[in-house]
Structures are given as structure tokens and as C-alpha cells.
């Protein structure tokens, strides 16, 4: 077990190495210059040359790359070209918001998605099943940012006359103060971000329960006269969980990095937006650092998923 974990965690090294190397050279290939962006619209060429030299960006790509990698392996992610701030500080500043949003969206989609999936499986081919499947399909068929805007319109929008357009209960955007205020601010982004996961998990739960139900031991249990619900909860659900956990793992990784649109719509201070903004300014150290953290999270979640597999089904051995 420990050996497995160590091996898995070590496997993150080549991936991160690959991603950072690729990003480093792609940022080089993209036409444009971070120093030029820093100067604003009118940049004096002499000033530009001077800043480029100060940042060491006048050296050949390969030299810069070696310097960068040496620093990274000694644990220094560098400073942003643009603001001069430490990359670690920039990322750590956004980390809590990112995790909060991703975890809440995940909990929402798991709880609601699995409940709906079980319900649909139990009522297979009935109206409820049909309704849930259509709803979950709509969940995965709607652009997230569009859903976010619609949610704002329904739950937060105040009309021209000062009264709520529909409900107007929740704050439109922002991070809020810790406590209840934070939860109120979190509600809409979490709901809109959870929609896709909810849809996938509901569908996956339904089909894997149906699959398990058709197997012999379940048929035996049914033949013994056990009530359907008991069969579902005691026997089928546990075995149906494995594919669901896989989906959860994949989805969670997507939630961490892919929340840019949601973060933009709701002005949520997450890490995805910082990465995209830094890409646009060609602020390489921030992009690299951000992607490194994402890749790390991605692998960690996969390890977690593997451990979950084992917890669910003791027959699974990690090797």
C-alpha cells in the first residue's frame, strides 16, 4: 500500500516535467512579449530592452529553461513578471476559494446526482426515470456560463424598479465574508458548476445499478423475496459505486481547473482565472506554477480514487 502510494506520487514527476516543459516552450513560440504587454499601449523600445535584460528574458530559450528548472527543483516557483509578486503567494491566495468552490460543487453533484440516479434505476422506464434522465441530459448539454447567467437572472437579479426580477435572494457575485455570507455567495457558482457533474453521476449511477441488478446474486436476492429497495441499497449500490467513483474523480479534476467560466461570471477569486489571465499576459512563471499545482491535484485525486476503490471493494488490490 505505502509502496503503491509512493510510486503513484512519484509518477507525478514526469507528468509535471512534461507539462511545464511543453508550456515553457509554447509560451516562447507564441508571438508576443510579456515585457511589451507590461508597458501598456505605447512602449518605449529602450525601456523595453532594459526591462527584458533585468528579467533575464534576453537569454536564449534553452538557457532560460535550464535556469527555470534549476529554480523549480530547489523549490522556488519564481516571481510574476507582471506584478513582481511571488508565484507561491499568488497561487496560495486563490487556493482556498478554488477548493471551496470545487468541493461544494462536487458534494452537490454527488449527493443530488446519486440520489437521482438511484431513483431513476429503481423506477426504471417509468415517468420518474424519464424525467431524471432528461434533466440530467440537459445538465450536461448546457454551457456552464450560460447556466450561470440564467441562475443570476432567476435568483439574484434586481430589476430597474428596484424589486427582484424573479427571486432576488442571493448576492450576484463575489466571495463574501467568512460564515453565512460566504455560503450565500457560494450557492450560485456551486450550483451552476455542479450541473455537469450531477448529470454524469446520475446517468452513471443509474446504468451501473441497472447492470448490477441484472447479475445473478441480485437475482438470487430478489428470488429470495427481499424487497427491491433493500436489494438496491444493501447489494447493488456498493457494487455500482465503482464506475461512479471513476466519474467523480475525473469530474473533480475538471472542476479544479475548468471553472474559469464560472469564476468569471460570478467574480469568484479562483485559480483557473489567474492561470488564463496570466496566459494572456504571457506571464510564464504564474502559468507554470498554476499548471503544476493543477497537475499535482489531478494525480492526488486519482490516487484518492484508487484508495476509494479499495475501500468499496476489498477484492481490488493495488499493484
Amino acid at each position: 500500500m505505502t509502496a503503491y502510494l509512493i510510486r503513484r506520487l512519484l509518477s507525478v514527476v514526469p507528468t509535471i516535467f512534461g507539462v511545464t516543459t511543453l508550456i515553457f516552450f509554447i509560451l516562447f513560440l507564441i508571438p508576443g512579449d510579456p515585457v511589451r504587454v507590461m508597458l501598456g499601449q505605447h512602449g518605449d523600445p529602450e525601456t523595453r530592452r532594459r526591462i527584458t535584460q533585468e528579467l533575464g528574458l534576453d537569454k536564449p530559450a534553452s538557457v532560460q529553461y535550464c535556469m527555470y528548472m534549476t529554480r523549480v527543483f530547489s523549490g522556488d516557483l519564481g516571481t510574476s513578471y507582471r506584478s513582481g509578486e511571488k508565484v507561491v503567494d499568488i497561487l496560495m491566495d486563490r487556493m482556498p476559494a478554488t477548493i471551496l468552490l470545487a468541493v461544494s460543487a462536487m458534494i452537490l453533484s454527488v449527493v443530488l446526482g446519486m440520489t437521482a440516479g438511484i431513483l431513476a434505476a429503481v423506477r426504471q422506464n417509468q415517468f420518474m426515470d424519464f424525467l431524471i434522465m432528461i434533466l440530467s441530459l440537459i445538465g450536461i448539454s448546457t454551457p456552464v456560463f450560460w447556466l450561470g447567467l440564467v441562475l443570476i437572472l432567476i435568483f439574484a437579479s434586481i430589476g430597474f424598479d428596484g424589486s427582484a426580477i424573479i427571486f432576488g435572494w442571493l448576492p450576484v457575485s463575489g466571495y463574501g465574508d467568512p460564515g453565512w455570507d460566504r455560503i450565500r455567495h457560494l450557492a450560485l457558482p456551486a450550483i451552476s458548476l455542479s450541473a455537469i457533474g450531477m448529470g454524469y453521476i446520475a446517468r452513471m449511477t443509474r446504468s451501473s445499478i441497472l447492470e448490477v441488478i441484472r447479475q445473478d446474486y441480485i437475482r438470487t436476492a430478489a428470488a429470495k423475496g427481499l424487497p427491491t429497495r433493500l436489494i438496491v441499497f444493501r447489494h447493488a449500490l456498493r457494487n455500482a459505486l465503482i464506475p461512479v467513483v471513476t466519474v467523480i474523480g475525473m469530474n473533480f479534476a475538471a472542476l479544479l481547473g475548468g471553472a474559469v467560466a464560472t469564476e468569471t461570471v460570478f467574480a469568484w477569486p479562483g485559480i483557473g482565472k489567474v492561470i488564463v489571465d496570466s496566459i494572456r499576459q504571457l506571464d510564464a512563471p504564474v502559468v507554470e506554477g498554476g499548471v503544476m499545482i493543477m497537475a499535482l491535484a489531478f494525480i492526488l485525486i486519482n490516487v484518492l480514487v484508487d484508495i476509494l476503490y479499495m475501500a468499496i471493494d476489498p477484492r481490488i488490490r493495488l499493484n
Partner: peptide, 11 residues
């Protein structure tokens, strides 16, 4: 659009 909604909601 979000900022506009925020303004209308007196944020």
C-alpha cells in the same frame, strides 16, 4: 453583465 446586475442589486 455581472457587474451591471451587482449595481442594480446595490452592490
Amino acid at each position: 453583465p455581472t457587474a451591471f446586475e451587482e449595481y442594480k442589486a446595490d452592490g
